[in-house]
């Protein structure tokens, strides 16, 4: 993070309200303390957020005095930049890309810090800490700079920018252990609770205004928790009774499914993540 602040003119920190971005904010505070975080937090809001996440976001920003910028997919739709997907599996996940790229352009951001990790998915295993994006925000897996030792090359031409992933070498378990060790507050949906859900193609989706039932589906009340908190339309829950960080760590350590395994968007095709990344997704 310090390397980002030192090498770039206009960084920002991608903030989703999920546990990884909360860890990122915590690390940023520590990196620059006693000075404030020298760049704004950018939240790309799909409009389909869990309310708990937004509440925590606003409280945190107020507490640490950070600058928060919110850009919504709804604005992009209203301005005709993107068109809403239709059908029962409609998701704004793909639409975020346009909103994100527009926001980065508007902020003249030359770097965006993200909490993505290489253990999340195969296409991310080769991601760099400093990941180069061309003028169109695109990622070319064949045109990434080699990263050696702890030396990071953030030199760029005007218009190009970097995605920077300080947590690249962390695993999901590392994140949870760090949250426990540093007592970082996270949204309540990560902990076990009762909620109305529907099971669709093996994914448990939470009841909300943006999901309509298909024939034969019914809302059921179950004890669940979320392993990631993205867009409500595609973030799956798991059946769990883990109600404390210690229990979550135990559950993650013995888990049989990766956290992205509960996300419907990745199951669309085997190379789904790679395709999204090429277009500018995180």
């Amino acid at each position: 993070m310090r390397e980002t602040a030192a090498q770039f003119e206009q960084p920002c920190l991608m903030f989703s309200g999920g546990k990884d971005s909360l860890v990122m904010v915590h690390l940023a505070r520590k990196a620059f303390w006693p000075a404030p975080i020298p760049f704004p937090l950018l939240h790309v809001d799909t409009g389909h957020n869990f309310p708990e996440t937004l509440e925590l976001r606003d409280r945190l920003v107020k507490k640490i005095g950070a600058k928060l910028i919110v850009r919504t997919v709804q604005e992009s739709i209203d301005r005709g930049r993107v068109k809403e997907e239709e059908g029962p599996n409609a998701s704004r996940n793909m639409l975020q890309i346009t909103t994100l790229l527009d926001a980065l352009k508007e902020l003249k951001a030359d770097s965006a810090l993200g909490g993505a990790r290489r253990d999340e998915e195969k296409a991310r295993a080769k991601e760099r800490f400093f990941s180069h994006r061309d003028r169109f925000g695109q990622w070319d897996p064949r045109n990434q700079r080699p990263e050696l030792w702890h030396i990071f090359n953030g030199r760029r031409h005007p218009g190009e920018h970097f995605r920077i992933f300080p947590l690249s070498n962390w695993t999901e378990l590392d994140v949870w252990e760090y949250i426990l060790m540093q007592s970082i507050e996270i949204p309540s949906m990560y902990f076990s609770h009762e909620r109305e859900i529907v099971e669709r193609d093996g994914v448990l989706l939470a009841k909300c205004d943006y999901i309509s039932l298909l024939d034969g589906e019914t809302w059921k009340r179950e004890t669940i928790r979320f392993r990631t908190v993205g867009d409500m339309t595609c973030t799956g829950a798991i059946r769990s009774t883990a109600a404390t960080l210690e229990e979550i760590i135990e559950e993650v350590a013995s888990a049989r499914v990766t956290e992205r395994g509960a996300r419907a968007d990745d199951m669309r095709s085997e190379a789904a993540m790679e395709d999204r990344k090429r277009q500018g997704y995180f």
């Binding site: 290489r118 253990d119 295993a125 080769k126 897996p141 064949r142 990434q144 080699p146 690249s168 070498n169 695993t171 378990l173």
Partner: peptide
């Protein structure tokens, strides 16, 4: 390319 894997 170089791919990174994690296990414990």
């Amino acid at each position: 390319d170089v791919a990174y894997r994690y296990f414990s």
